[in-house]
Design a protein around this nucleic acid. Structure first.
Lengths: 140, 140
DNA sequence: CAATAAATTTAGAGTGATTCTAAATTAAAG
DNA sequence: CTTTAATTTAGAATCACTCTAAATTTATTG
């Protein structure tokens, strides 16, 4: 789990990434990082920000999510072809994906062991190992 | 790796799944299963079928890919938010995903060990474990 | 084989998430 | 306070994919 960050820490992180700490970015960062780890879609974050009284456009939410991802503050999780999920926990870990609800739950990385990887493509190096455990409601 | 299947075997598999072995389905099956394992997107398969002189519509390619997936002949791989990949190898295995080229390469399942899964969501059961090793070109 | 019923295909319209564009606003620098 | 460059934004555009309804094909039955 990531440490909660305050406005100042965030502003510094943004500046370091070459991003001005604007009202919109700080508002979204507030939503994303103020209360522990989050898994959000762009639409969900947009709705949340608007509901919280932070006026932001959907375009800015998309821009910001990508910029934060580029800056290493977020990571994108590929689980659904229909929408993108962003994870505020950038440390090494994996996910459950609940097929019915679309909910994501973290799995600590130590639960999964990756052995020697065979037939690694020539000249390539690993940038990340992603494990998604798809679960569905047990029939009762 | 899956065993190559001939038209008759495929027609039988389709019938068993309640699908009529139409010209289009058999053509696409030909592309998908005649020469070892494949990883295709809908657009790519469409282009390939048309180029091979099998007249098919894009809508039918989409329908067929989903029907084949439902019938257990294909499996969908989630690696890219922008497009869906379908894998003609339905046996238990994982993937390399080359971030630059979009190429998928199989990883045999024995190379990855999944330990006891913690904090499994209540009342849920695992439907599949997907491991994607994202790789990128090594800087030279 | 002919007639009928049911499944399939398809062109083209529709959808929904995401990206782009170009104008208006805002932050940083001087 | 000006100037400059970055940012935001509404709305248009895009792109993968799905839907619709009509035309075609497959399977079934007489």
């Amino acid at each position: 789990m990531n440490t909660p960050r305050n406005q100042e820490t965030l502003a510094r992180a943004l500046r370091k990434a070459g991003l001005r700490p604007t009202r919109q970015r700080l508002s979204l960062a507030q939503c994303l990082f103020a209360n522990g780890d989050r898994h959000v879609t762009a639409e969900a974050l947009y709705a949340e920000a608007v509901a919280a009284g932070y006026p932001v456009s959907l375009a800015t939410v998309y821009n910001t999510l990508h910029q934060f991802t580029g800056a290493g503050l977020l990571r994108q999780v590929m689980v659904d072809t229909n929408r993108s999920y962003f994870d505020s926990n950038t440390s090494d870990h994996h996910h459950y994906f609940h097929e019915e609800t679309g909910e994501l739950v973290d799995i600590p990385s130590h639960a999964v062991t990756v052995g020697d990887l065979p037939n690694m493509p020539e000249g390539a190096e690993v940038s990340r190992v992603e494990v998604v455990v798809r679960v569905h409601q047990r029939a009762s």
